[in-house]
């Protein structure tokens, strides 16, 4: 069946045999966006986190049919080298990644958190950032999340000045 969804700002129509195929595999294999990772396939690690209509979703356990007509954002669409998202910028400044495999999922979860809670407390972070990082980068991640909140706030101020 055909499913239409907007991925990183571009409208895509994909032909999928089984509408229950997890969104993760459509993104990775059909659309060839490999930044969203497979870790467990059971919504237990968060490596596959991406945004559906700006909400963090564990795409390994999210049937593609539910994405029909929706806006999907992956790490590739969050920002790029010319225009990093504040979360990516903060991750670079704090030199967060080690192996790096879990990082896109954490960055997407953080982007979703900042959409809702622009200035998260440590408690907000503990409650909302529940992915698994085996390399143990949580210490730097926490710093990076606070920094991303600052960068995002500055960006909002600058943008409003420009307007």
């Amino acid at each position: 069946m055909e499913i239409s969804l907007t991925v990183n700002g571009i409208l895509k129509t994909v032909d999928i045999a089984d509408e229950n195929t997890p969104l993760l595999w459509v993104v990775r294999d059909t659309l060839d966006l490999k930044g969203t990772k497979f870790g467990c396939g059971k919504a237990a690690c968060g490596a596959c986190t991406l945004l559906v209509d700006d909400e963090a979703v564990r795409s390994c356990s999210y049937p593609v049919k539910f994405a029909e007509g929706k806006k999907v954002t992956t790490i590739e669409g969050l920002g790029d080298r010319e225009n990093p998202h504040p979360v990516q910028q903060a991750w670079i400044e704090e030199i967060v990644p080690q192996c790096g495999y879990c990082q896109p999922g954490f960055m997407m979860a953080t982007a979703a958190l900042l959409n809702k809670v622009p200035k998260p407390t440590d408690e907000d972070i503990d409650k909302n950032i529940i992915n698994v990082c085996r390399c143990g980068t949580y210490y730097r991640m926490r710093k990076a999340i606070h920094k991303a909140a600052e960068l995002q706030a500055e960006k909002v101020i600058n943008e409003s000045k420009e307007v």
Binding site: K34, K37, I75, D80, P97, G100
Partner: peptide, 19 residues
Amino acid sequence: IARVDLDAKVYGDPIFGMD
């Protein structure tokens, strides 16, 4: 010095075995 693979890992480049 910042990690040489920092950008690749922050922008989601397809660098892993799974990719």
